[in-house]
């Protein structure tokens, strides 16, 4: 009687859990089932997300360095010393960390502007009716679909100072007089912005494109009757109607760029120049080159807080904006 046995076991499990957690016994059968479905996901997330974050925050207050890597729990508590060390711009590490934070902000804001302009342009074009539209959409998505490690290496090859095709083309059409160093020196951060934007703009494009498709045609028809031109329609209908999608896009691109490791790590190669060391890459190099885990964790927490603060300011700004304009 496998069926009854199973039912019995289920009931038994429910009874036991119900006794242990009064909360659980009050749930309906449907809600219990939902929790059971979610249980594996929740357990894993606690283990890999929640626990390490608490733990990481904990070791940011401890002097975990190379001598304590094996037995981190024996490391002494040092209070906020790690934070005051990495945030002090007068020390070498602190100075470089602040510089890395600055580069991170440039990287995030620059990538946001470039991906948004490219993505919106592409989305607006794809929203028109023309033959080959579907093919164009597929082709424009390819930079995002191709493995990003591969595409970053292609750009690294194209940006080579001596043999790279980009310098060659720029030289031959006369835009520059001598080969430029793209992957070293002050240009590095802009190279990073451009390359990262190339890999990300299709995502922005497809999100804005979906948003465009959701704008009711009647709005445009009404505007045509009122004699609105292309620009007026874009300014007073398309752009405001895209606002909710744009808000999500801006938030995601900003946050994802600030915590992006792959782009600088692969594009800048084994010896990343200082100018290209955005926050997370600098933390990585610093923490793992000499096992400075305590200080590295402190920097990670700072980076996390900066990203979160920017996201919250942005959200508040959005909210106030909506409020002032009286949108719903």
């Amino acid at each position: 009687m496998p069926h009854t046995t199973k039912q019995f076991r289920e009931r038994l499990a429910d009874v036991q859990l119900g006794d242990a957690l009064p909360f659980y016994s009050r749930l309906s059968e449907e809600q219990r089932f939902a929790y059971k479905l979610l249980a594996p996901a929740l357990a894993m997330m606690c283990l890999i997300h929640l626990l390490p974050i608490v733990w990481g925050t904990l070791i940011s207050f401890m002097g975990v360095d190379s001598s304590y890597v094996q037995e981190w729990y024996r490391a002494p508590f040092v209070g906020v010393e790690n934070y005051s060390y990495v945030l002090d711009p007068r020390t070498v590490v602190g100075g470089r960390f602040w510089f890395a934070i600055r580069q991170t902000v440039i990287f995030a804001v620059g990538s946001l502007v470039v991906t948004y302009v490219l993505g919106l342009t592409a989305a607006l074009i794809l929203n028109q009716k023309f033959t080959g539209r579907f093919v164009a959409r597929t082709l424009l998505l390819l930079p995002w679909v191709a493995p990003v490690v591969v595409t970053l290496l292609i750009w690294r090859m194209m940006f080579q100072q001596q043999s790279g095709i980009i310098n060659h083309v720029l030289l031959s059409i006369g835009l520059i007089n001598e080969p430029i160093y793209w992957l070293i020196g002050d240009n590095t951060i802009w190279t990073l912005v451009l390359t990262h934007s190339w890999t990300q703009f299709p995502l922005v494009m497809i999100m804005l494109y979906a948003g465009l498709q959701g704008i009711p045609d009647q709005l445009y028809e009404a505007a045509s009757i009122d004699g609105a031109g292309r620009w007026e329609k874009f300014r007073y209908i398309t752009f405001p109607q895209l606002k909710p999608v744009s808000a999500v896009v801006v938030l995601l691109v900003m946050l994802w760029t600030m915590i992006n490791f792959t782009a600088p790590f692969v594009l800048l190669g084994a010896q990343p120049p200082q100018a290209g060391q955005v926050g997370i890459l600098y933390i990585y190099e610093f923490a793992f080159s000499n096992y400075q885990f305590g200080r590295g964790a402190a920097m990670s927490v700072v980076l996390f807080l900066i990203a979160m603060t920017m996201a919250m300011i942005y959200y508040k700004y959005l909210f106030d904006d909506d409020f002032a304009e009286g949108d719903r």
Partner: peptide
């Protein structure tokens, strides 16, 4: 979880 810098999880 999508907004946590990976390095904060990698160290611990």
């Amino acid at each position: 979880t999508q907004m946590i810098p990976g390095i904060l999880i990698l160290l611990p």
